[in-house]
Simulated assay, not measured.
Amino acid sequence: MADPLLKIEELETFFPIKSGIFKRTVAHVKAVNNISFDIKEKETFSLVGESGCGKSTLGRSILRILEPTGGKVLFHNKNILNYSSSELRKLRRDVQLVFQDPYSSLNPRMSVRELVSEPLFTHFSISKEEANQQVDEMLEKVGLPLEQAERYPHQFSGGQRQRISIARAFILKPKFVVADEPVSALDVSIQAQILKLLMQLQEEFNMTYLFISHDLNVVKHISDRVGVMYLGKMMEMTDTDSIYEEPLHPYTQALLSAVPKSDPLEEKERVILKGDVPSPANPPSGCPFHKRCPKAMEECTTIEPEFKEVKENHYVACHLY
């Protein structure tokens, strides 16, 4: 069996909390706390969870936009956390990020052509003619008319801006892309178009995706496997069909019960979670979910469940299994 393209081992990203006159570190926000998984070539692995669960921090830690506190990120079996700045610069050709908000991620002073060609000039010795040709091809692929290439970001709608962001990230034909909530700021009708575009580009360029979202409805159509995060921890991980047909963790069950059904007459049991997500600076003892869990037992309050395989390729961190 081929090695995975990306392998994350016991990754941690903690942020210090400082207090007092001397700004001493008194605690840490454990945004990503001991997470391990891998992503195969040409696969789409999706991370889901409520806002503040650490999924975006995990995506940025993998790319070293945020520096992890510990663990390993193996890309083609090489730990990129040990890379020097020059090695990291070369790596940027192969790993890219599509941001959630196309409004703030695009420089308003640059035209579309300048924005999309900038990565080419950064990473390659390339003539202006060659760059323009590649930009024209990429704009066509993402569905933007070439006559709009000299316009500026403020002249486009949200969906068009996200197409510009995708063109900018994909112009280098990277092997691995982190898509951080790429459709959450868009209308539902536009979301479907952008998802379809991402799937087409993945097939054309043989890309691998880490797709981050809080919306399980969105994830269903694009993912091969899904990981569910809560308070910096992985709660459940399996293939997409299994997570929708047989969710094991009470947190996953609650998330899925909130997804609207296409048939309004179809009855379903809604799981209402009590309370708010605890602070990652002061997580509860035992299972991080036990204070909100409808199935919590005595041992959940003191013993943290092990993240283990309970069925074939179906991993869960819960004392019920």
Rank of each mutant, 00 (worst) to 15 (best):
residue 1 M to R: 13
residue 4 P to D: 08
residue 6 L to A: 13
residue 6 L to T: 08
residue 8 I to R: 06
residue 9 E to F: 01
residue 9 E to Q: 13
residue 10 E to Y: 12
residue 10 E to R: 15
residue 12 E to C: 15
residue 15 F to Q: 04
residue 16 P to E: 00
residue 18 K to M: 13
residue 19 S to P: 05
residue 20 G to Y: 11
residue 21 I to F: 15
residue 26 V to K: 12
residue 28 H to R: 02
residue 30 K to E: 05
residue 33 N to M: 12
residue 33 N to S: 10
residue 36 S to H: 06
residue 41 E to N: 11
residue 43 E to F: 04
residue 46 S to Y: 02
residue 48 V to K: 01
residue 49 G to V: 11
residue 49 G to K: 03
residue 55 K to T: 05
residue 56 S to R: 03
residue 57 T to A: 04
residue 58 L to D: 06
residue 60 R to E: 10
residue 61 S to H: 07
residue 64 R to K: 15
residue 64 R to N: 14
residue 65 I to C: 15
residue 68 P to Q: 13
residue 70 G to V: 13
residue 74 L to H: 03
residue 77 N to W: 01
residue 79 N to C: 02
residue 81 L to M: 12
residue 82 N to F: 10
residue 87 E to M: 10
residue 88 L to N: 05
residue 91 L to W: 06
residue 91 L to D: 05
residue 92 R to E: 07
residue 93 R to F: 01
residue 93 R to N: 05
residue 95 V to S: 12
residue 95 V to T: 05
residue 99 F to H: 00
residue 102 P to K: 08
residue 104 S to W: 08
residue 108 P to C: 05
residue 109 R to K: 14
residue 110 M to F: 14
residue 114 E to L: 04
residue 117 S to H: 10
residue 117 S to F: 01
residue 118 E to I: 11
residue 119 P to A: 12
residue 122 T to W: 01
residue 123 H to K: 12
residue 126 I to L: 10
residue 129 E to G: 00
residue 132 N to P: 02
residue 136 D to A: 15
residue 138 M to C: 14
residue 140 E to A: 11
residue 142 V to F: 00
residue 145 P to G: 09
residue 146 L to H: 02
residue 147 E to R: 13
residue 148 Q to C: 07
residue 148 Q to R: 14
residue 154 H to N: 14
residue 159 G to Q: 11
residue 163 R to I: 04
residue 165 S to I: 00
residue 172 L to C: 15
residue 173 K to M: 11
residue 176 F to N: 04
residue 176 F to K: 06
residue 185 A to V: 03
residue 188 V to A: 11
residue 188 V to F: 06
residue 189 S to P: 05
residue 191 Q to W: 02
residue 191 Q to A: 09
residue 195 L to E: 04
residue 196 K to M: 14
residue 204 E to D: 07
residue 210 L to V: 14
residue 212 I to A: 01
residue 213 S to P: 12
residue 218 V to A: 00
residue 219 V to Q: 01
residue 219 V to A: 03
residue 220 K to T: 11
residue 222 I to D: 01
residue 224 D to S: 12
residue 227 G to W: 02
residue 231 L to E: 02
residue 239 D to Q: 13
residue 265 L to A: 06
residue 265 L to M: 04
residue 267 E to D: 03
residue 272 I to H: 10
residue 279 S to R: 01
residue 282 N to I: 07
residue 282 N to H: 14
residue 283 P to I: 06
residue 284 P to W: 02
residue 286 G to R: 10
residue 287 C to K: 03
residue 287 C to E: 02
residue 289 F to W: 01
residue 289 F to Y: 15
residue 291 K to W: 02
residue 292 R to F: 03
residue 296 A to C: 07
residue 296 A to D: 06
residue 298 E to G: 08
residue 305 P to H: 09
residue 305 P to D: 09
residue 313 N to A: 15
residue 314 H to W: 07
residue 319 H to M: 13
